[in-house]
Design a protein around this nucleic acid. Structure first.
Length: 200
DNA sequence: GGGTTGATGTTC
DNA sequence: AACATCAACCCG
């Protein structure tokens, strides 16, 4: 199995976010093909953690491209991001939804759900399905130090024309950026194309 | 189907 | 106080 290297994560954060759609996220015996991502830019994006959190600024300063940025939100859910660094725009990419691929029974057990289209259709859901949590913060997902059994693998599951962009979900800053990338028509996304409520 | 609400705890 | 969420519940 060939995994993406750090060069993949050393490009523009928007290009990487778009290209991650269709890539298989492999995590210790379970996996899913990414069907939804959101880009957050280190500079000029008020919605990015680096805009308000010193700890996030420390992370992007010291961690390599491809490192996992994992954080706890709403007192209940872990959210999994990938660090992009070394291209025109650095940033963090939230993985928002997967089409389950491997280890589906284990994911159903962890989620206590049977329906395939509800297993990983949201950032909190997929972290639970894959058992991603705080101790995985900083895990290198590309290049040296990548744990055995974890990584990102190219697939031919979708074509470029399947991927559309839309505004981001659940934020109150920089709400107009169309920096969410998703497979149009996929039943596995968190929010369908065009369904995010507009501000005002 | 769509809207509303409560659960829950870390960071700033 | 805000928060890159989710599921359960209402209403119809």
């Amino acid at each position: 199995m060939r995994f993406l290297g750090t060069d993949f994560f050393s490009r523009d954060v928007l290009a990487v976010a778009r290209d991650l759609v269709g890539v298989e996220l492999v995590w210790r015996g379970s996996s899913g093909v990414i069907v939804e991502t959101e880009a957050y830019a280190v500079a000029g994006d008020a919605a990015c953690h680096t805009a308000h959190r010193p700890s996030a600024r420390e992370f992007v300063k010291h961690m390599p491209p491809g490192a996992a940025y994992v954080y706890f939100n709403y007192g209940m859910y872990w959210l999994f991001n990938l660090h992009v660094k070394g291209g025109p725009r650095d940033g963090l990419i939230l993985i928002r939804a997967l089409e389950p691929a491997r280890g589906i029974e284990l994911m159903k057990f962890r989620r206590k759900k049977q329906r395939l289209d509800e297993l990983c259709s949201g950032p909190g859901k997929l972290a639970l399905a894959l058992d991603i949590h705080g101790e995985h913060h900083g895990t290198p997902m590309a290049g040296r130090g990548r744990p055995a059994g974890c990584g990102l693998r190219m697939t031919d599951r979708f074509s470029e024309s399947d991927v559309v962009s839309d505004i981001r979900v659940g934020i109150s800053q920089a709400v107009d950026f169309k920096w969410r990338f998703l497979v149009k028509g996929s039943p596995h996304v968190s929010v369908k194309f065009g369904k995010v409520k507009m501000a005002g």
